[in-house]
Amino acid sequence: MELHGYFRSSASYRVRIGLNLKGLQYDYTPVNLLQGEQRGDTYRKLNPQGLVPALVDGRTVLTQSLAILEWLDEQYPEPPLLPGDPLKRAKVRALAYSVACDIQPVQNLRVLQYLQSEYAISDKQKIHWIQHWIHEGFTALEKQLDPAPFAGGDRPGLFECCLIPQIYSAQRFGMDISEYPAIHRIMNACSDIAAFVDARPENQPDSTL
């Protein structure tokens, strides 16, 4: 398998965690978002949306991080990313989607670039925008998280694949995660797990490019 991504992309980060949790080997091909490589003809042939990540497995090309993670869970069921119980599975999906579909998209690079180019927002306004939407989302998540170590029980899964990259983004823009005790607890629980450590942006080959 080959993963095309960017070291700071939340969606790429999610898939790196998922691949690591599954113990799967993959080659990593950087796509420099700041230099616009995702909009080039070569990458567009792989992913017409011009977004990362893209996972290539033989002749199959998969896009959209949550679709990739669920495909991985179906193809390589152990260890699972989702609980076996249908209701618990739905609840974990809801938590994961709240990050991947509600919080993260409004702080996506292309959204921020559009705000800056079309509305001339300042860097200070950009940071306020990011912090506002993360705070809104994290405040809601706090009310939904159970006291178990992880959202799905005793092992990290789909939700943690989404949450940890969002925490990274929050911290990058100056937010104090200790203000969100349940999220902070999950962050600490994941901090020493190799699958999460190896997936960190600073541990990717393109972080120094």
Results as ranks from 00 to 15, higher is better:
S65Q: 09
E2S: 00
I121G: 03
G58H: 10
Y43V: 01
N32F: 12
Y168E: 08
L145D: 08
D198I: 00
L62F: 15
A199F: 10
R110H: 05
F173A: 03
E78K: 12
T29K: 02
A140Y: 05
E74Q: 11
K45M: 13
Q75P: 00
Y114V: 02
F138Y: 09
Q113P: 03
R39G: 01
R14Y: 07
G58Q: 06
S65C: 09
K124A: 14
T63D: 06
D27L: 01
E136A: 03
R59H: 13
D102C: 04
Y168V: 05
R59N: 15
P105H: 11
L109H: 12
L19H: 04
R93L: 13
R172K: 14
I186R: 15
S10D: 04
C162D: 07
G137A: 05
Q125H: 02
P86I: 14
M187F: 10
F159V: 05
R185M: 15
F138K: 00
Q38D: 07
Q35R: 15
P165K: 02
Y119E: 07
T60V: 13
D176I: 03
V197K: 15
S98A: 09
A94F: 15
Q35F: 06
L24Q: 13
R93I: 15
Q38Y: 01
C162V: 02
C161H: 01
V99H: 03
T208I: 05
L34Y: 13
G152S: 09
V52M: 05
W71P: 00
D27C: 04
M175Q: 15
P201S: 11
C161A: 14
P83R: 07
L115K: 08
P48C: 09
D41P: 01
V15G: 03
V31G: 00
G174P: 08
Q104K: 00
E136N: 04
S9M: 11
V92D: 07
R155N: 10
I164T: 08
G174V: 05
G137T: 05
L145R: 05
Q38T: 03
K124T: 13
R89W: 11
L109W: 06
P165W: 00
N108H: 14
P181W: 11
V61G: 02
Q204V: 14
Q116H: 07
Q49V: 07
P181C: 11
Q113D: 08
R110V: 07
